[in-house]
Design a protein around this nucleic acid. Sequence first.
DNA 1: GCCAACGTTGGC
DNA 2: GCCAACGTTGGC
Length: 149
Amino acid sequence: MRYWLMKSEPSDYSIDDLVRDRRVAWYGVRNYQARNFMRDQMQVGDKVLFYHSSCPQPGIVGLAEVCTAAFPDATQFDPAHKYFDPKATPETPRWFNVEVALTQKTRLMPLSEIRGYPALERMRILQKGNRLSITPVDPDEWAFIVGQL
DNA sequence: GCCAACGTTGGC
DNA sequence: GCCAACGTTGGC
Protein backbone atom coordinates (compact mmCIF):
# COMPACT_ATOMS: atom_id res chain seq x y z
CA MET A 1 0.00 0.00 0.00
CA ARG A 2 1.30 3.38 -1.00
CA TYR A 3 0.45 6.96 -0.15
CA TRP A 4 0.15 9.87 -2.57
CA LEU A 5 -0.59 13.55 -2.79
CA MET A 6 -2.64 14.61 -5.79
CA LYS A 7 -3.10 18.24 -6.77
CA SER A 8 -6.18 19.69 -8.34
CA GLU A 9 -7.10 23.26 -9.08
CA PRO A 10 -10.40 23.78 -7.30
CA SER A 11 -11.63 25.99 -10.13
CA ASP A 12 -11.18 22.89 -12.25
CA TYR A 13 -12.20 20.14 -9.84
CA SER A 14 -12.58 20.74 -6.10
CA ILE A 15 -13.06 18.60 -3.01
CA ASP A 16 -16.72 19.62 -3.05
CA ASP A 17 -17.01 18.23 -6.56
CA LEU A 18 -15.64 14.97 -5.21
CA VAL A 19 -18.10 15.04 -2.33
CA ARG A 20 -20.83 15.33 -4.94
CA ASP A 21 -19.44 12.70 -7.33
CA ARG A 22 -17.95 10.31 -4.73
CA ARG A 23 -15.40 9.15 -7.32
CA VAL A 24 -13.66 10.63 -10.32
CA ALA A 25 -11.28 9.70 -13.14
CA TRP A 26 -8.06 11.64 -12.64
CA TYR A 27 -7.81 12.59 -16.29
CA GLY A 28 -5.70 15.33 -17.80
CA VAL A 29 -2.29 14.41 -16.40
CA ARG A 30 0.17 15.26 -19.18
CA ASN A 31 3.44 14.85 -17.37
CA TYR A 32 5.38 11.63 -17.82
CA GLN A 33 6.56 11.30 -14.27
CA ALA A 34 3.07 11.75 -12.88
CA ARG A 35 1.70 9.39 -15.50
CA ASN A 36 4.23 6.75 -14.56
CA PHE A 37 3.24 6.97 -10.92
CA MET A 38 -0.37 6.27 -11.87
CA ARG A 39 0.36 3.66 -14.50
CA ASP A 40 3.16 1.74 -12.82
CA GLN A 41 2.86 2.19 -9.10
CA MET A 42 -0.66 2.98 -8.02
CA GLN A 43 -2.78 0.14 -6.77
CA VAL A 44 -6.36 -0.13 -5.70
CA GLY A 45 -6.52 0.82 -2.05
CA ASP A 46 -3.64 3.30 -2.10
CA LYS A 47 -4.35 6.37 0.02
CA VAL A 48 -4.51 9.87 -1.40
CA LEU A 49 -4.20 13.36 0.04
CA PHE A 50 -6.41 15.64 -2.04
CA TYR A 51 -4.67 19.00 -2.46
CA HIS A 52 -5.98 22.30 -3.81
CA SER A 53 -3.40 24.20 -5.87
CA SER A 54 -3.31 27.50 -7.78
CA CYS A 55 -5.97 29.04 -5.61
CA PRO A 56 -6.34 31.56 -2.76
CA GLN A 57 -5.89 28.88 -0.08
CA PRO A 58 -3.63 26.10 -1.29
CA GLY A 59 -3.50 23.05 0.96
CA ILE A 60 -4.81 19.61 1.83
CA VAL A 61 -8.59 19.45 1.85
CA GLY A 62 -9.52 15.77 1.91
CA LEU A 63 -8.65 12.10 1.88
CA ALA A 64 -9.35 9.70 -0.95
CA GLU A 65 -8.47 6.25 -2.16
CA VAL A 66 -7.36 4.81 -5.47
CA CYS A 67 -10.26 2.66 -6.67
CA THR A 68 -9.17 1.41 -10.12
CA ALA A 69 -5.98 0.40 -11.84
CA ALA A 70 -4.73 2.82 -14.49
CA PHE A 71 -6.48 2.84 -17.86
CA PRO A 72 -6.10 5.05 -20.94
CA ASP A 73 -7.23 8.63 -20.38
CA ALA A 74 -10.20 9.08 -22.72
CA THR A 75 -9.59 12.79 -23.25
CA GLN A 76 -6.39 12.16 -25.24
CA PHE A 77 -8.46 10.74 -28.12
CA ASP A 78 -11.04 13.53 -28.29
CA PRO A 79 -10.09 16.23 -30.83
CA ALA A 80 -12.55 18.62 -29.25
CA HIS A 81 -11.03 18.27 -25.80
CA LYS A 82 -8.35 20.53 -24.45
CA TYR A 83 -6.37 17.47 -23.38
CA PHE A 84 -6.42 15.98 -26.88
CA ASP A 85 -3.07 14.52 -27.91
CA PRO A 86 -2.68 14.03 -31.67
CA LYS A 87 0.16 11.59 -31.10
CA ALA A 88 -1.96 9.21 -29.04
CA THR A 89 -4.09 6.46 -30.55
CA PRO A 90 -6.27 3.83 -28.89
CA GLU A 91 -3.72 1.23 -30.02
CA THR A 92 -0.85 3.15 -28.46
CA PRO A 93 -2.23 5.39 -25.74
CA ARG A 94 0.16 7.80 -24.11
CA TRP A 95 -1.76 8.99 -21.11
CA PHE A 96 -3.35 7.02 -18.32
CA ASN A 97 -5.43 7.72 -15.29
CA VAL A 98 -6.78 5.95 -12.26
CA GLU A 99 -10.04 6.70 -10.53
CA VAL A 100 -10.12 7.92 -6.97
CA ALA A 101 -12.96 7.69 -4.48
CA LEU A 102 -13.66 10.10 -1.66
CA THR A 103 -12.82 8.93 1.82
CA GLN A 104 -13.67 12.18 3.52
CA LYS A 105 -13.53 15.89 3.15
CA THR A 106 -11.35 17.30 5.92
CA ARG A 107 -10.56 20.71 7.25
CA LEU A 108 -8.17 22.75 5.15
CA MET A 109 -4.56 22.19 6.15
CA PRO A 110 -2.95 25.17 4.42
CA LEU A 111 0.40 24.96 2.71
CA SER A 112 1.70 27.45 5.29
CA GLU A 113 0.76 25.04 8.08
CA ILE A 114 2.37 22.09 6.30
CA ARG A 115 5.54 24.18 6.05
CA GLY A 116 5.57 24.68 9.78
CA TYR A 117 5.84 21.02 10.73
CA PRO A 118 9.40 19.66 10.94
CA ALA A 119 7.93 16.17 10.42
CA LEU A 120 6.81 17.25 6.95
CA GLU A 121 9.79 19.25 5.82
CA ARG A 122 10.87 16.60 3.32
CA MET A 123 7.58 16.53 1.44
CA ARG A 124 7.94 17.08 -2.29
CA ILE A 125 5.40 19.87 -2.40
CA LEU A 126 7.60 21.91 -0.08
CA GLN A 127 10.70 21.59 -2.22
CA LYS A 128 11.56 24.61 -4.29
CA GLY A 129 10.38 24.45 -7.84
CA ASN A 130 8.36 21.32 -7.39
CA ARG A 131 5.55 21.19 -9.90
CA LEU A 132 4.65 17.53 -10.02
CA SER A 133 0.91 17.10 -9.68
CA ILE A 134 1.23 13.62 -8.19
CA THR A 135 3.86 12.85 -5.57
CA PRO A 136 4.54 9.94 -3.25
CA VAL A 137 4.00 10.53 0.45
CA ASP A 138 5.89 8.66 3.17
CA PRO A 139 3.78 6.52 5.50
CA ASP A 140 5.08 8.57 8.42
CA GLU A 141 4.03 11.78 6.73
CA TRP A 142 0.60 10.36 5.98
CA ALA A 143 0.11 9.30 9.59
CA PHE A 144 1.27 12.66 10.89
CA ILE A 145 -1.02 14.62 8.59
CA VAL A 146 -4.06 12.47 9.30
CA GLY A 147 -3.36 12.95 12.99
CA GLN A 148 -3.56 16.72 12.58
CA LEU A 149 -6.75 16.79 10.57
C1' DG B 1 0.01 39.84 -12.71
C1' DC B 2 4.71 38.46 -11.62
C1' DC B 3 8.24 35.40 -11.99
C1' DA B 4 11.19 31.32 -10.71
C1' DA B 5 11.57 26.73 -11.85
C1' DC B 6 10.94 23.16 -14.64
C1' DG B 7 9.43 20.20 -18.80
C1' DT B 8 8.99 19.84 -23.72
C1' DT B 9 9.97 20.85 -28.44
C1' DG B 10 12.54 21.14 -32.45
C1' DG B 11 16.45 22.85 -35.28
C1' DC B 12 20.99 21.70 -35.95
C1' DG C 1 22.69 14.67 -28.33
C1' DC C 2 22.82 19.63 -27.42
C1' DC C 3 20.52 23.57 -26.06
C1' DA C 4 17.72 27.79 -26.92
C1' DA C 5 13.11 28.97 -27.06
C1' DC C 6 8.87 28.37 -25.46
C1' DG C 7 4.96 26.87 -22.51
C1' DT C 8 3.25 25.58 -17.99
C1' DT C 9 2.94 25.39 -13.02
C1' DG C 10 1.87 27.42 -8.88
C1' DG C 11 2.87 30.38 -4.86
C1' DC C 12 2.71 34.94 -3.79
